[in-house]
């Protein structure tokens, strides 16, 4: 069985944040939720300054702190390496979120249907699109996935539950790449089977030096980075996004 992983080439990332938007539209995540987030960094002092970028999906750790602490098994590891969230089982205790050192979890603080950017209840629009709350609703997100048949895809599913990057599990099962990897203009984001030595990701990891985030935390992320270096205290975030809902 394939065990998926992601390899992000920071030497190729232009920091455009297309992956962030593609993720949002694909997964219908509510306002303020960035399952994929792109850090824009600078380091050094003028004129010896360097600008670089780092996309941050969920790390889908093999030794995932979030899975370990989930009291009800809503957060779990799939055999294909994905760290999934069963939004039907989640009780909304947010323990996974405080346990995660990467800050990738997003809780539905609000009723999601009231949290999609625009007034979709506008009567003129309602006449055209009916009572759809996310008018670009992706129909794949409500299905159950995996042999365990659990509903783990998409965002904005219910008030009071936790959600995060799913590696676009609904796309994987159709044979497609995650939305971020598919959209990346410079193809900095590669996705594939890390167990298959012939896969593009495995080859990249053989060929190039790489690192993982917070390796010292022992979480064994399935997301690898090529190029640049792990962010350290001298790295400063620029054009940061802090949206509260």
């Amino acid at each position: 069985m394939a065990r998926y992983g992601m390899v992000i080439d920071l030497d190729k990332c232009t920091g455009c944040r297309a992956c962030m938007v593609a993720c949002k539209v694909e997964n219908n995540t509510p306002q303020g939720h960035f399952w994929m987030y792109v850090f824009r960094f600078e380091e050094g002092e003028y004129p010896n300054t360097r600008t670089w970028f780092m996309p941050r999906p969920c790390m889908h750790c093999d030794n995932a702190p979030c899975v370990k602490v989930c009291p009800v098994g809503a957060r779990y590891k799939r055999l294909d390496g994905l760290t999934a969230t069963d939004f039907d089982r989640c009780i909304g205790c947010r323990y996974c979120e405080v346990a995660c050192p990467y800050g990738v979890n997003y809780f539905n603080w609000k009723k999601p249907e009231g949290n999609y950017y625009l007034d979709w209840d506008d009567p003129d629009l309602a006449e055209i699109v009916g009572d759809e709350k996310v008018v670009y609703a992706n129909p794949d997100l409500d299905k159950a996935y995996g042999p365990e048949k659990r509903r783990i895809a998409g965002g904005g599913q219910a008030k009071g539950v936790m959600e995060k990057c799913t590696f676009c599990v609904h796309r994987l099962e159709k044979g497609l790449q995650p939305a971020c990897a598919a959209i990346c203009p410079t193809q900095a984001i590669k996705f594939g089977d890390l167990d298959d030595p012939e896969s593009e990701v495995s080859q990249l990891l053989r060929e190039k030096p790489h690192f993982r985030l917070l390796e010292e935390a022992g979480t064994s992320p399935r997301v690898f980075y090529i190029g640049q270096h792990a962010p350290n205290p001298s790295v400063r975030q620029i054009e940061e996004i802090t949206v509260k809902v």
Binding site: D62, N63, A64, V67, K68, C70, G73, A74, R75, Y76, K77, R78, L79, D86, G146, P147, E148, R150
Partner: peptide, 9 residues
């Protein structure tokens, strides 16, 4: 250490 769905149920 949970490594499969079996650890969830």
């Amino acid at each position: 250490t949970p490594t499969s769905p079996a650890y969830a149920d």
